[in-house]
Amino acid sequence: MTPKTIKREDGRNYDELREMKAKVGVIKNADGSAMFSFGKTKAIAAVYGPRLLLPQHLQNPEKCTLRCYYDMAPFSVTERKRPGPSRRSSEISYVTKNSLSHVIKLENAPNTVIDVYILILQADASTRCAGINAAALALANAGIPMDEMVSAVSIGKIGDEVVADLTKEEEDFTIEKNGKIEKAATDIPMAVLSKSKKISLLQLDGKIKKEDLKEAIELAKKVTDKIHKIQIEALKQIK
């Protein structure tokens, strides 16, 4: 990859993430919990389980069931968001579950359930990625055996540049084309597994060529290493 020199609105390099903070054990009642933030985006996650799954007919005798719930606090965005689930939050909960379940040894605890609750306190883009990072930490904090760690980041393309960790402002970037204002940012949330470097979350909206997507995947692999380090540091702080 050729080194790029573009500076972004907030002075970051193309591969520079916003300041990350991670803290484990933020909710005492939960079996595991964590907070993770990218700049102004802040997520907390709590894990309860493995515990017996009830009602009984939902139980899977072969393996543990993983359930994820993504929720945005009404005050996490500029205009109040109506509390409760939406079509958007259902979809994010579902892709979050898919991004995490492969690394958990679910066959260890048949008939049980692990519930992962994610709450977004402050939103400035990449909320699903912050949520996944917090959830992975919370699962580790709960002592649930995992094959590898999950680290998520949103890679974007603004104009012609592929950059890491978009802010809301960058996500809404527009250009003028033939007198028309067009949305010109592409958003690609991805989750990368720490050892195998496989991709367990991939969504995309915008407009991108295959070659740029390849660059985006490579950038995601590179920068998730930094996220992984922050996660490991946070886990070492557990007393």
Partner: peptide, 13 residues
């Protein structure tokens, strides 16, 4: 490419 979505639990390389 204008949109993508990965489904299912197994990851991709």
């Amino acid at each position: 490419i204008h949109a993508m979505q990965k489904g299912g639990e197994e990851p991709f390389s």
